[in-house]
Amino acid sequence: MTHQEPAIIELADLSREFTVHRKGAGRLRRDRSTLTAVDRLSFVIAPGESVGYIGANGAGKSTTIKMLTGILVPTSGSARTCGLEPVRQRRELARRIGVVFGQRSQLWWDLPLRESFSILAAIHRLDTARARSRTTDLVEQLEMGQALDTPVRQLSLGQRMRAEIAAALLHSPDLVILDEPTIGLDVLSKQRLREFLIHERTERGTTLLLTTHDMGDIERLCDRVLVVDHGRLAYDGSLPGLAATVGARRVLVVDLAAPAADLSDLPDSEHLGSEGSGMRQRLAFDAETTTAATLLAEVSKRCEVRDLSIEEPDIEDVVRRIYQSTR
């Protein structure tokens, strides 16, 4: 960055605790314990960045987003979004950001999609001409033309997600926050969605904060990755850097034609386990050091391979490793 612009998201020692009441069976009093969902989180996101925010379930991602958008009040620390205080200046902030919560709809279920768009245009007080051109634009890019007259509850999941994103972008916000937007989508829909987001960013320089479990989303959309584990920031940097830090490994699963001894002495790979007395074997390898093809060749030298598959690093595994490595 050549000139300093005010950060679009700024977190300083942000923390959020929850008191959990649990009633034991047959006991009169309730146990109270404190759950720290977000623990002194600090990071800064500059305008125009595209950031992936990942972590295991319950790691504090949704809680962070709620604090960024003014839904939840921090227990301590501070958050500033678009230079505003999220809770106190919630309404002003709402004009500048667009948020999509993957599991919850912000559209009107029983009306045709186009009505949801026109209501939202009125809610954001967009003037008719702008609203119309923006809606047309979004509908075209997200290929929602056919769905416009369908009641939202009858849309497929893929169509609904695209509709939610269009709705969030209708007022051309400076910051877009997407919480698990591709969950449950098929490959094609995911692809289309990603392409749209990339286009939108290049066109308008919208900042993107994306929460996801899908590494594919991160790979294609984000230049920066924030990993959160148990409420703490475990990693802040680029994606290749993440893989490198963690030493993330892919796993080659081979089905052999005949039972064989454990292939534990192949170069650049670790034998993880065998099933069916050696007919199926799992071999982990570091993507930096070797490739699946090379490893497969090695295996084929020893035995006849009937079938194979490749497992990508599990995000939970990656996160766990990061956390262990930064401790």
Binding site: R22, K23, A25, G26, R30
Partner: peptide, 8 residues
């Protein structure tokens, strides 16, 4: 919001 109640 909803309190988990064991023993239900």
């Amino acid at each position: 919001m909803a309190t988990a109640t064991a023993g239900l």
